[in-house]
């Protein structure tokens, strides 16, 4: 393998990591604050894809702009879903069967709404960017992937700033650390949970809209990404946003480079082998490892 080939692969992995991070972070914040494994994440990603598709088809709106618009739209959807369904779930420090079933049911409902509205036809967005390439000397990059990566990285940066520099972010981090202690020091846990759920769903919608520019989709869209999101959040340590970014990068690097040594048909197995290894060797994920190091220091 030449150096250029290596660089091409590295860039492909980095671009993939951006997409992986933005599709996983919504699940992480919801799990962190509410201990809910949001299986409906895939359903909201699918809805995000159709949101971008409809805006592109009807209003000829740039899909990247549609992805940005998806944030407030799906935030409101998330807040409404929380108000209608999620708030009735029993509070717990651990994921409950009720929450798992509710989210699974919601995913099925969303999927069937998708089939009802759009049928089973594969849709895709063919924009002027779809086939455009950026040539940097011998390195060729898909301009669409580059734009999607920038949008995804921007979303992650905004989330990081929101979590570290705002009252809402501090509340979220407090609840992730200890819900009851957070309440004692004055955090409105219900309001924070509602906004966090809205934000998690908003990220799912944004991720879906961004992915819609790269892949064709149908109402079952999101399922393979959901499985990867699980691997990433376990790698990242379930409750850490920066851990998610690193988990996404590791998964993307492993998937991209391992294919050079193993047949492509084993690619799905690579993710799950990684998941098993992390669960056995590093059950707290990367964030757990950092915390351990800090304690030791």
């Amino acid at each position: 393998m030449t150096f250029v080939d290596f660089l091409n692969l590295l860039i492909a992995a980095l671009l993939l990591a951006g997409i992986y991070a933005v599709m996983s972070v919504g699940m992480t914040v919801i799990y962190g604050v509410m201990k809910i494994v949001n299986l409906a994440h895939a359903g909201f990603m699918m809805m995000g894809a159709y949101f971008a598709y409809e805006l592109y088809q009807r209003l000829h709106l740039d899909p990247i702009l549609a992805a940005l618009l998806a944030f407030p739209f799906f935030f409101l959807v998330g807040v409404a879903v929380h108000w209608l369904l999620v708030r009735w779930l029993p509070h717990s420090d651990r994921p409950t069967l009720q929450s798992l079933l509710l989210m699974f049911g919601l995913w099925l409902v969303l999927q069937n709404i998708g089939y009802l509205i759009w049928g089973n036809t594969d849709r895709s967005i063919l924009s002027p960017r779809t086939l455009a390439l950026v040539h940097l000397g011998p390195i060729i990059i898909s301009s669409l992937r580059l734009v999607v990566f920038v949008a995804a990285a921007g979303c992650m940066a905004v989330l990081e700033i929101a979590l570290s520099r705002t009252w809402f972010g501090r509340s979220v981090r407090a609840l992730i650390q200890n819900r009851y202690a957070g309440r004692i020091v004055g955090v409105d846990d219900e309001k924070t949970a509602r906004l966090t759920f809205g934000m998690g769903i908003a990220f799912a919608g944004v991720a879906g809209a961004l992915l819609a520019t790269l892949y064709s989709f149908d109402p079952d869209f999101g399922r393979p990404f959901l499985l990867r999101a699980f691997v990433i959040i376990v790698l990242g340590g379930l409750e850490s946003v920066s851990g998610v970014a690193l988990g996404a990068l590791i998964l993307a690097l492993v998937e991209t480079f391992s294919i050079l040594f193993v047949p492509a048909s084993y690619q799905p197995a690579i993710s799950f082998a990684l998941l098993v290894v992390v669960l056995v060797v590093l059950p707290g994920g990367i964030a757990g490892l950092w915390a351990k190091r800090r304690r030791l220091a």
Partner: peptide, 12 residues
Amino acid sequence: EKFDLGGTDFSG
């Protein structure tokens, strides 16, 4: 080389 049906990423 072979690949799995229903793949999402064939870049590798």
